[in-house]
């Protein structure tokens, strides 16, 4: 290898410094922060499925197109704020958030645009271990939960059943469902997904009851045999009043969200991200490598990319195809 990358970097640094000096001479928008045009900044939300998607997109951007792809760890809602501020370029897996689209989208201040589906569908719901349903048939229904609420009591939830909530950033309507169906349950906030999964695994290992907020696609389903609680199907608008929700969570067609200028300016990086679309099975395959086999995310991505050229070849812009 030669010394040119170093010299290139130095030149780039100098150019960036110039840009900085120029921008400070007048009004400054948050979008004028130092940004390398060859770097794509991708929000990284906390769950492993998202990480799998980000890993593959990052890998392809770097290996196939020669970009730098930077993953920025953020919660869901702050990710939108980051797009608005110009701190990142894209959210790869968005779950709903119509309210944020109203604020920042074309109908709001116009800093973000919908990037269309990424091919994954997501479903949030209430889950419990399969062995509970074997022991108490029908416990995974509204009636069953009413009958067996005391089964789920813990020291933390007192004389009510415990419903274990997940990460604080996730979309929830649990209290509304508890109130609507008159369930004798108290929400215990696990505070983070890591804590929640640890607790679920422990109870599962001991064969104890546990009822918790979870979602698919999720890698833990590969490890534990979990059953979904049956609620009335979601219909449009049944979750309008979050204090009284008489239905299950909706199925989300997960979509991409772009920073307005990222989509506007285009370029090969944008084209790749825009063309990227895959299935839940694809995502799970990569997520399993990361979470279960403990691979680094880029190793996991490399393995998937090596095994699935037919899936990803079409995403590469034609001009860049080898």
């Amino acid at each position: 290898m030669s010394t040119t990358p170093g010299a290139g970097r130095a030149a780039k640094a100098a150019a960036l410094l110039m840009a900085l000096l120029m921008t400070t001479s007048c009004a400054v928008r948050t979008t004028s922060i130092l940004r390398d045009p060859d770097t794509v900044r991708i929000a990284l939300n906390a769950w492993v499925g998202y990480e799998a998607s980000a890993a593959v997109v990052q890998y392809l951007l770097e290996e196939e197109l020669g970009y730098q792809a930077q993953l920025v760890q953020l919660d869901e809602q702050p990710s939108w704020q980051a797009l608005d501020q110009g701190a990142i370029d894209v959210i790869l897996e968005n779950w709903g958030h119509q309210d944020l689209m109203d604020t920042y989208g074309p109908g709001g201040n116009g800093t973000v645009v919908d990037g269309g589906p990424n091919g994954n569908t997501g479903h949030i719901g209430w889950y419990m271990p399969a062995y509970l349903v074997e022991e108490y048939p029908g416990v995974n229904t509204v009636e069953g939960l009413k009958e067996h609420a005391d089964l789920f009591r813990t020291p933390e939830s007192g004389d009510q059943g415990e419903f274990l909530s997940g990460a604080p950033g996730f979309v929830t309507q649990d209290q509304g469902m508890i109130d609507h169906f008159g369930l004798d349950f108290q929400i215990v906030y696990a505070g983070s997904e890591a804590a929640q999964i640890t607790e679920v695994r422990n109870r599962y290992a001991d064969g104890e009851p546990v009822l918790f907020y979870f979602y698919e696609p999720q890698w833990l389903f590969e490890e534990l045999d979990l059953v979904r609680v049956e609620f009335p199907e979601y219909t449009e608008g049944c979750d309008a009043d979050l204090e009284d929700v008489g239905c299950d969570y909706p199925r989300y067609d997960l979509n991409k969200i772009y920073r307005e200028d990222f989509a506007e300016e285009g370029g090969p990086a944008y084209e790749l991200v825009d063309a990227w679309e895959w299935t839940n099975a694809d995502q799970n395959a990569v997520a399993r490598l990361i979470a279960d086999e403990g691979l680094d995310r880029d190793e996991a991505a490399a393995r998937w990319v090596a095994d699935n050229p037919d899936v990803w070849r079409p995403w590469i812009p034609e001009t860049d195809r080898a």
């Binding site: 809602q77 604080p168 950033g169 215990v188 505070g191």
Partner: peptide
């Protein structure tokens, strides 16, 4: 502590941050 289920004020901070 709110990240492992302590709830109360700590959770208010964490939740506020995560949900804007």
């Amino acid at each position: 502590g709110a990240l492992v289920g302590a709830g109360a004020l700590g959770y208010g901070v964490v939740f506020g941050l995560a949900q804007n």
